[in-house]
Design a protein around this nucleic acid. Structure first.
Lengths: 331, 331
DNA sequence: CTGAAAGCGCTTACAG
DNA sequence: CTGAAAGCGCTTACAG
């Protein structure tokens, strides 16, 4: 029942295999009577076309490659949820390619291309302009449609789906400034990449506008390492507000601050980015920028299907709306 | 450069395509001189075999299907990390199949089989015995190797990688009993499935042993719904300890308890399962059962590669060790 | 050690 | 509307 081939169906239905193929792919070209007969046999035999053979013959695999770095991050997983839901709607399968730090990102691309995917979704938000450029070139050279999800790029030729991180950084900083905070730190990552660069730009713009001195503190994404950094931090500085470029950074900072007897939000206001469950479960709840990660994934996948089907797409650079979720960690 | 085929390589190297194929798949059968020449051409042309064509000809796709339900759950994502790392070591690709509530799980299996994967990793831990049985039958009928990850089954014929959840449930309950807690609730899920059944069994065993009355409270996995349930809960009951079958349940319970002026751990001890970041970031930190999810994924993938290569596997039911991480939410 | 040929299970012009 | 045939890019017995 599972290993029925198109020949078996053709034989049982008394037609040629070409007709069976048409019933599946171009049903309007087959007389209804024939079509129904074939369909009946397909059902009886439990026939499902071998997608590998189909892929070879049609040069379309209805598979998209999804490139991720750290799947462990909640935002990545949720984006995958959006991608997966839309992919299912459009009958695409998903092949997952996890890129590790020790791998050459361009070399990996060639492996993905060898897998004959119809398109690629690139999720790594820790990219800089140079890498985005190289990746774009590789895809273009190989004529593979691609979309970057949650990546910021200035290249008008690169399909991206994202939010306006600069604006988000500006707004969250502004919220704290309006609450008369003056020594506002931005807790960013040690490693530099476009998305965080944008947040930083927005932060700096708001601070400058208010005549305040921007202070960016770079730390690791690792919760344990953070603890160490932040403790040193408190012995040094005056501070009445902090913005973490990720919720997890903000929450671990907030926890350590409270251990050091800073009251939140009275003496110290804290805010984060992404509005993950961390923000909801922390005490006090964390004010955060809601990034619609599920939607970014879903919209990116939808954009990719358009590009794969060569519909002319009017806008390949989509900015989704974000908003601030105000909670107890700020006033 | 990307669209070089095996014919191009054969032509440029002055050999037949069979030889090129051998260089790639059975290099020991090719004279060194020839092999080096072919390898050089492959490199020059940037040739990468079309995996689809290879899959059709060899009837091996070196792809495994990974079936998941809710990828959003941290444990699922981390398991995928382990799977992905090992898959890369063994040169397997991963196709992701997300099963939604509204889909027939068995019907989906046929779709996966049509994708010609060499094996399947089944991650949904919310399975009961009946479903596990049906899934097993379908795979066996179609001669597809499979492994269940983080699933509990009594069937000695079903390859599983998991921890001993019954024992874990017993141990965490025992920890609270030894702290002289008497009214210990287990906060479980409304929906019943094997993994949580095991936790419940262990909990009940420990309670009975101590002559205490087991009290199981069933709630939704949804954080918002939980709040509502738990609040009603407090107006009703006396309680001095609670165990959440997931950290997220335990943490949201703990937060709501503290809002209702229960002091943790003095008046109320709380513990969870999975030892996720929730446990680390909550205030107070949550005592939890550490489930080695990354390892479960990695070991499951390794077991699957053995089954796919038909090595005789001595043990297809692997139990990984777990341990209790004691933190501030208990004494 | 190497090549010619068949075949994997489909799709898709091309005829009719 | 339907069928015969070529072809997708490989692998793998089979000869030699």
């Amino acid at each position: 029942m599972s290993n029925a081939t198109i020949y078996d169906v053709a034989g049982a239905a008394g037609v040629s295999l070409a007709t069976v193929s048409r019933v599946l792919n171009n049903p309007e070209k087959v007389k209804e009577e024939t079509r129904l007969r074939v369909l009946k046999v397909i059902k009886e035999l439990g026939y499902r076309p071998n997608v590998i053979a189909r892929g070879l013959a049609s040069r379309k695999t209805t598979t998209v490659g999804v490139v991720i770095s750290d799947i462990t991050r909640a935002s990545v997983a949720e984006m995958l949820g959006g991608i997966s839901d839309i992919a299912q709607n459009y009958k695409y399968s998903i092949k997952l390619f996890a890129i590790r730090e020790d791998m050459d990102p361009i070399d990996t691309l060639y492996d993905i291309i060898a897998e004959q995917v119809d398109g690629v979704l690139y999720l790594n938000d820790e990219l800089n302009d140079r890498l985005v450029g190289e990746i774009k070139k590789t895809f273009k050279d190989n004529n593979i449609p691609f979309v970057f999800a949650n990546v910021v790029s200035n290249d008008p030729d690169v399909p991206t789906v994202s939010i306006d991180y600069e604006k988000a950084g500006y707004e969250i900083t502004k919220l704290l400034i309006n609450d008369h905070r003056e020594s506002i730190y931005l807790l960013s990552t040690a490693r530099k990449y476009s998305v965080n660069d944008e947040k930083e730009k927005g932060y700096v713009r708001a601070m400058n506008e208010a005549g305040l001195e921007p202070k960016i503190f770079r730390t690791s994404g690792d919760t344990n390492v953070n603890r160490h950094h932040f403790q040193a931090f408190f012995s040094d500085k005056k501070i009445d507000a902090a913005i973490g470029v990720r919720d997890s950074i903000a929450v671990s900072f907030m926890n350590i601050a409270m251990d050091a007897n800073h009251t939140v939000p009275e003496k110290l206001a804290v805010a984060g980015f992404q509005n993950t469950k961390y923000a909801l479960l922390s005490r006090p709840n964390l004010t955060s920028i809601d990034v619609p990660v599920y939607d970014i994934g879903a919209v990116a996948m939808r954009l990719l299907t358009k590009l794969m089907n060569e519909k002319d797409v009017d806008n390949i650079r989509i900015i989704l709306p974000h908003y601030i979720v105000k909670r107890q960690s700020t006033r």
